[in-house]
């Protein structure tokens, strides 16, 4: 795993402060959240779990769709592909940088909730676990989309956003799942954000649609699916 860690460190140094990553990972979820939160009668503090969930999703999945096409263009990606590390380590290393970035960024809404709105956290440990699994799941999703063999960041981002944006509406972040029609609830089951958001909601309120254990299991299943598919696609597209 030393190769994976080396890749993650490299990404941290190069990409964390790139403007398009800041826009996609921080500004995008913030404005998205504000556009839904303003005008709602609910106290702002109750919206913190949803804000954490979408911040995790956007920031975790924003690093690789930017870094990998750029590295393809400047041919540094070839350096990673020809290094004595497994493809699994390469994919994990890429995901690791998105994961760590996301955890750092998600601490902002968490801190705002605690300091500004005094939002109580019922299960702190569950909150930490939910953030870790949600962040890793979406970091892997970002790495999966970045497997698409293009040197154009915009192409990957467009494809990714066609998946990320609908997830906000079908995962119970702004509209509670119980308030959604049956078909919506069915679709919500195939969204990883549903389980991440559900677990974060549980950590804050003690109430959730599913048990935290089921949420974790579902997130692990999504991580495995994304990781295995990413491995396959990176292998396939290198031919």
């Amino acid at each position: 795993m030393s190769g994976a860690w080396a890749i993650a460190k490299k990404d941290m140094r190069i990409y964390y402060l790139k403007p398009n990553i800041i826009v996609s990972g921080i500004m995008f979820p913030l404005f998205m959240f504000l556009s839904f939160a303003i005008g709602k009668n609910a106290p702002p503090g109750t919206l913190i779990p949803g804000l954490i969930a979408i911040t995790l999703m956007f920031s975790a999945s924003s690093i690789e769709p930017v870094s990998i096409p750029i590295e393809r263009r400047v041919k540094t990606f070839e350096r990673l592909l020809s290094a004595p590390i497994s493809l699994y380590s390469l994919v994990s290393g890429e995901s690791l940088s998105g994961f760590l970035y996301s955890l750092g960024i998600a601490c902002l809404p968490l801190a705002i909730g605690v300091i500004v709105f005094h939002t109580p956290i019922v299960h702190a440990l569950i909150l930490a676990i939910s953030m870790i699994f949600t962040a890793f799941c979406f970091a892997t999703l970002g790495t999966l989309f970045a497997a698409y063999p293009t040197e154009n960041v915009g192409e990957v981002m467009s494809m990714l956003n066609t998946v990320r944006l609908p997830l906000i509406f079908i995962s119970g972040v702004f509209i509670p799942l119980s308030a959604m029609p049956v078909i919506g609830q069915m679709i919500a089951l195939i969204s990883p954000l549903t389980y991440g958001n559900d677990m974060i909601e549980y950590a804050y309120t003690g109430k959730s649609l599913f048990s935290p254990l089921l949420d974790i299991m579902m997130l692990i299943i999504f991580i495995l699916i994304f990781q295995v598919t990413a491995n396959y696609l990176y292998k396939k597209f290198n031919e």
Binding site: V74, R79, P84, I85
Partner: peptide, 26 residues
């Protein structure tokens, strides 16, 4: 491997580039 393109990381220093390459090779 020294590829035809000078595939170095422009946003890293020369030292960091070498350290990264060495880490990839354990």
């Amino acid at each position: 491997i020294v590829s035809e393109n000078s595939n170095v990381y422009d946003d890293l220093t020369a030292w960091q580039n070498l350290m990264f390459s060495a880490e990839l090779y354990h």
